[in-house]
């Protein structure tokens, strides 16, 4: 019973991180139809920027700077590269895969493969009975929940959020009412980069980071974006929480060696039942 509470909390934390990553995948795909395989590298960029800035300037300044760096990198990559591949899936795929390989090599060369730790939040709290949970993990749960709620709210209430949803819904219709699709794509990439950076910072707060940190989360981000029904925010959140909890429970109670398999099994099962994902309503169009 005690262990169950801890396991569920860890699952929620993991689910929160997957939500941040999956939202970026789903947003950029929804607006630009680019499946960005290099998306995970924004996590790594954010994580390293946070660790490096924290060492030089302190954690307080490092937070906004890491977001800025990752958002800025995403913006630059969109303007010089991704924007030109819109409408050509193969080009987008080739560009993002090339970018992924380049980034991985760049990080290994610049930061070496040795794990690095940033500022850690020390201490543990006792839950029920014997179970202890590091404070850092609780902080991460809090941060991801706040960021996801703020993002969801902004998507509903702000003009940029409306533009992102409208362009993701029907690009041609969006152009008929004067929505600038290319610029909205830039918003999508910047928001996705910043959300990935939040995930990167959170990861750096609880575990040492390596050049491969982003990549491992990217795959999960893809899984939740697809299960959620590409383009759906609620779907991504629900799928991410399902995956996080499934992994945590499976690791603890079934077989720890299969952690990475659970997500893909979940994806296969859900796609067999609902081929367009949980929350994909794109096919629904009343006549």
């Amino acid at each position: 019973m005690d262990a169950l509470v801890t396991t569920i909390l860890l699952g929620i934390m993991q689910g929160g991180l997957y939500t941040l990553v999956g939202l970026g995948v789903t947003l950029t795909f929804g607006v630009t139809h680019i499946l960005n395989f290099a998306h995970g590298e924004f996590i790594t960029v954010g994580a390293y920027a946070f660790v490096l800035f924290a060492g030089a300037l302190g954690a307080g300044l490092a937070l906004p700077l890491a977001l800025l760096v990752a958002g800025g990198v995403a913006a630059i990559l969109y303007v010089v590269g991704f924007r030109r591949t819109i409408g050509n899936h193969l080009q987008g795929l080739a560009f993002s895969l090339g970018l992924l390989l380049f980034a991985e090599a760049f990080f290994v060369r610049t930061f070496t493969a040795t794990p690095r730790s940033g500022p850690r939040i020390e201490g543990t709290v006792s839950l029920i009975g014997e179970e202890q949970l590091p404070v850092g993990r609780l902080v991460v749960i809090g941060v991801t929940i706040v960021v996801v709620v703020v993002t969801a709210f902004a998507m509903r209430r702000t003009w940029i959020g409306l533009a992102l949803r409208a362009c993701g819904d029907d690009e041609f219709a969006a152009s008929t009412v004067g929505l600038p699709a290319r610029r909205v794509g830039l918003y999508a990439f910047v928001v996705a980069g910043a959300l990935a950076a939040v995930a990167g910072i959170c990861i750096a707060l609880v575990v040492p980071i390596t050049p491969a940190t982003g990549l491992s989360f990217l795959l999960k981000g893809f899984v939740v974006a697809i299960i959620g029904g590409l383009g759906s925010i609620e779907g991504t959140f629900v799928a991410a929480m399902m995956l996080g909890l499934l992994e945590a429970l499976g690791t603890r109670y079934v077989e720890a060696g299969l952690t990475n398999a659970y997500g893909f099994v979940l994806m296969i099962v859900i796609l067999l039942v609902a081929p367009a994902g949980l929350f994909n309503r794109r096919q629904v169009r009343a006549g």
């Binding site: 409306l162 533009a163 819904d169 029907d170 041609f172 009412v177 929505l179």
Partner: peptide, 18 residues
């Protein structure tokens, strides 16, 4: 070609974007 996943109110708001 209405925005099928957006509410009626948001469809109208999107029209006013520019």
């Amino acid at each position: 070609m209405v925005f099928t996943q957006l509410s009626v109110a948001d469809n109208l708001r999107a029209g006013a974007f520019s």
